[in-house]
């Protein structure tokens, strides 16, 4: 999730200080990972340094979150670019780790199937949580849960596909690990 671009977008309608931005962010996007204050200030600092936002004043009170920022013209341009550009379809980090775990398990002679079975149960448990969120949540919560559920579903299909190919995969890994066997 591009926190900096989201904060930029939240700043566009009106100037805000960090506290309000963080609250708004968490309200819409914080379900999966709420923002830490330090992350907000660090991100605003970088956006300011890059000329995408300007410090326009300091509200009364103390603390760094009282600094009020506004989006600059360059910031609006960057926001346009970010919104216009399709996202590169990204393999989720967890699936990359899973892929690595399967190969490492096989190449070290460990059974990969129980590991994938446990992962399937962990994914299904998360799916149940998301379904409950979907049922009890407002429209934003439902869309958020849907997004995760469809991705979990894709991961689960990958797990099933991996289990179905484990024997072939083990043979492949074995050939790579022991090339002499192949040539004999």
């Amino acid at each position: 999730m591009s926190v900096s671009r989201i904060l930029l977008g939240l700043l566009e309608p009106r100037s805000q200080h960090g506290y309000v931005l963080r609250r708004r962010y968490d309200e819409w996007f914080g379900n999966s990972r709420p923002l830490k204050s330090a992350q907000v200030y660090a991100t605003l600092g970088r956006l300011d340094r890059d000329g995408l936002i300007d410090l326009t004043g300091v509200a009364s009170g103390v603390g760094p979150d009282r600094r009020v920022y506004a989006i600059t013209e360059a910031g609006v341009g960057e926001l346009d670019r970010w919104l216009d550009e399709p996202e590169v379809p990204e393999v989720t980090a967890s699936r990359r780790v899973l892929f690595a775990k399967v190969l490492i398990a096989l190449s070290s002679g460990r059974p990969a199937e129980p590991m994938l079975d446990r992962q399937r149960q962990a994914h299904l448990a998360r799916m149940r949580e998301m379904r409950v969120q979907r049922q009890s949540g407002d429209l934003l919560g439902q869309l958020d849960a849907d997004f995760e559920m469809y991705h979990l579903d894709a991961d689960l299909k990958w797990i099933d596909g991996a289990v179905a190919r484990l024997a072939r995969l083990a043979a492949l890994v074995s050939r790579v690990d022991n090339p002499q066997k192949e040539s004999r």
């Binding site: 199937e113 129980p114 079975d117 446990r118 399937r120 149960q121 994914h123 299904l124 799916m127 149940r128 998301m130 379904r131 559920m149 979990l152 579903d153 689960l156």
Partner: peptide, 21 residues
């Protein structure tokens, strides 16, 4: 379908006629 299984309290996974997980 995993989305259907998500309505359950838990999932029993079968493989080759046995409970795998």
């Amino acid at each position: 379908e995993a989305r259907v299984a998500a309505y359950a309290d838990r999932t029993v996974f079968l493989r080759d006629g046995r409970v795998a997980a």
